[in-house]
Every structure is written in structure tokens, then in C-alpha cells.
Computed example of a mutant assay.
Amino acid sequence: MSRRLRRLPAIVLPLLLATTLVACGDDDGSDSGSGSTDALHGITITGDVGKEPEVEWDGELKVDKTATEVVTEGDGEKVAEGDQVSAHIWIGNGTTQEKAYSTYDQKQPESVQASNDLSPVFKDAIIDRTIGSRIAVTATAADAFGEAGNAQMGIGNKDTVLLIVDLMDKQVVLDGPEGKEQPAPSWAPGLITEGDKVTGLDFSKAPEPDRKLQSATLIQGEGDVVKKGQTITVNYLGQVYGGKKPFDESYSSAPASFAIGVGQVVSGWDKTLVGAKVGSRMIIALPPAWGYGKDGNPDAGIKGTDTLYFVVDILAAS
């Protein structure tokens, strides 16, 4: 998901992982599987899958290539390429032996698509593994995050990294909205579409915004109700009132996943998407107080007086 929709800066975990998960690298030299007896270099990992791991370091972690080991073998379904999985991720600095980040601190797993586009650090820990597994990866910071390391996690480019991935479950992600169409409200702009994809908004017949938070369901989904704290997967498009083109959208790339109702996205999304049903297409109008406030978002061309309109297709929730 673009940082444009986030109220928080790039320290937010999903945005950091966007860099991690597509880091450069290849598989050459990687060890994998529980048969890789030296993968953990003396590190002991204990605890149940689904609870934050307890890590005992055996001094400074020194590695020059990526190695993967199954700590706990799950008995769930095997993860195939293209699957969307819910995973807890623990990251430690192998040089300082300190925790750098953990989704357990947020009490919310991360939603990750199993793809050959993942960096080798994550690819071998996810694809062809079984749900319920705990997988550990040791790597250089360069292999995990790129040549610069990850300063926001306190990991320098010469450090080493321990990553622990708990595969919690597989998610069913819809291809598009599914349900009964509903009449559009009078305040809503028209949708410009190509099939199920929204490519823009037409404000030619839309009234001036009234600076109130507005939301309506254009397609009533038939799935579960979205609850606060869940990770949802959506396609979305955002456009300023009267704007000629979107300032951000996901339809041309890939759906976005994030925790809802907990401050990871602009407050208007937290307010309106909790309580909606999976499969729904929502139209939302966000006045500045529910979007980026009086400062707006200059990087996205959004002024502090702009009302933002979004179409959001809710494809999954877990």
C-alpha cells in the first residue's frame, strides 16, 4: 500500500516489508529445510507457533549467505505460489543480538502473498511450507534488505539478521467485489471502470463536498463483517474532488493489505471500513480532518483543504 494512505511514516512495518520482500538477490548458496543443521549457528529458538519466539543467541551471528531451517513443522495446508498468507514475523539483529521488530508487538500478523517475486530470504521461508510452521532464516543485512541495510530497524549494512516466520493461515482473496449492486448516493462521483477495475472518478455531476465524512456501499458483499484489528486486503482508488486523475490506486498493480481500525491508515478508512462486509465495494468521502489534516500531503498533491474520494473493494479479512 502506498505511504500516501498512511498517517504514519515509513517506520510502519508493512511499508518496511515492502522493501524487504522485494529485495534484490538470488537463491545461489542458500541452504534450506530442516536438514540444514548449521543454519541457526547455535541459536536456540523456543516457544509455540503463534506466540512470540524466545531466542537465545550463541554470541554474534556471523554469516555470509542465506540459510533457512524449519524450527517447527506445521500440519496445515502447503503454501503454493499465489496464495495469500497471514504470518507473524520476528526480526533480530545478529550483530547486537537484539530484537529489531516483531509483529507480535502489534498483536497483528502480516498479510503476505507467496510469490516468486519475494526476496530469497522470504521466498524459501514461505513457498512450499505448511501452515502452522515456524521457519528461521539467517542472512546478511544486504541479502535481507539491500545494500543499505535497514536503519529504521537499527540494522546496519554490515550487520547480520535472524528472521523467524510463523505461518498462521491461508487467506481467501476475492478477485473483485462480489454481491448485490446498490444505488449510489447523491453525493458520490461517477465511477470510470474497465470491467471490475476502477480507473478514475467522474465529478461532473457530483455536488460540492459538504466537509462531512461520508461512506456508502455500492456493492453489498456477502462475506464476513470486517472487525477492528483485522488485516484486510483491498483494491482502492483515491482522487481529490474535482481532480482529473487519481493520486493513488492499486487496481493496476496488486491489492494492498493492512490492519484496520488501529491507526495504520488515515482515520476515515478506520472509521468507515470497520463494519463493512468482505466482497463489498465502498465509496468514501474524506474531509481533511479524516484524511491528512490541515497540512495535506504535498507529495501526493493533496492540499489541506482538499476532500478525498475513495473507492475501496474489500477482498479479504483475517
Rank of each mutant, 00 (worst) to 15 (best):
R134S: 04
G190D: 14
D169A: 14
A139N: 08
I155D: 04
D143N: 15
K99F: 01
Q84K: 03
Q152P: 01
I131R: 05
A100N: 12
S133K: 08
V85C: 11
E181P: 07
G146E: 07
G190M: 03
I155A: 08
S186C: 00
L163E: 14
N157Y: 08
G149H: 04
P177C: 11
F145L: 08
D83H: 13
G132F: 06
T138P: 02
T193I: 00
T138G: 06
L118T: 04
S115K: 05
D166P: 12
S102C: 02
S111K: 07
Q171W: 00
E110I: 03
D175S: 06
V172E: 13
R129C: 10
V172T: 12
Q106K: 09
L174H: 01
I155L: 10
I192M: 11
D105Q: 11
P183V: 04
M168L: 13
G179K: 12
L191S: 07
R134L: 07
Y104F: 15
K180F: 00
L174C: 00
L162R: 14
T138W: 03
N150W: 14
A87V: 15
P120Y: 14
V112S: 04
V137P: 01
G154P: 04
S119V: 06
N93T: 09
G176W: 00
A114S: 15
Q97N: 15
L162N: 10
P183L: 05
D143Y: 01
D83Q: 09
T140G: 14
Q108N: 10
T95E: 01
K107D: 07
I127F: 08
K123R: 15
N93K: 03
T103W: 07
I127T: 11
I127P: 01
W187A: 07
K107F: 06
L191Q: 11
G179T: 12
A87N: 08
Q113P: 01
A142V: 12
G195N: 05
M168Y: 02
Q113R: 15
K107Q: 12
E178H: 08
A125D: 11
A144Y: 11
I155C: 05
I135V: 15
A188L: 08
P177G: 05
F145I: 12
D196W: 02
D166C: 10
I89S: 05
Q182E: 14
E98F: 06
T130F: 08
L163A: 15
D117P: 00
A139Y: 02
L167S: 09
Q152D: 15
K170L: 10
A148S: 13
D105F: 03
A151E: 15
A151V: 14
A114Q: 05
N150T: 11
Q97M: 07
I192W: 00
D117N: 13
I135P: 02
A136R: 10
T103C: 03
A144N: 07
A188T: 10
F145G: 09
G132H: 02
I192N: 02
A100S: 15
P120Q: 13
P189A: 15
D128E: 15
S111M: 11
A87Y: 09
W187D: 12
P185H: 08
S111V: 11
G132N: 06
E110A: 09
T193D: 00
L118K: 01
P177N: 08
I131C: 02
L167F: 13
G92K: 03
K107T: 04
A139R: 04
D169P: 00
G149T: 13
N93V: 06
I89F: 09
V137A: 10
A142N: 09
Q171E: 05
E181A: 10
D169F: 02
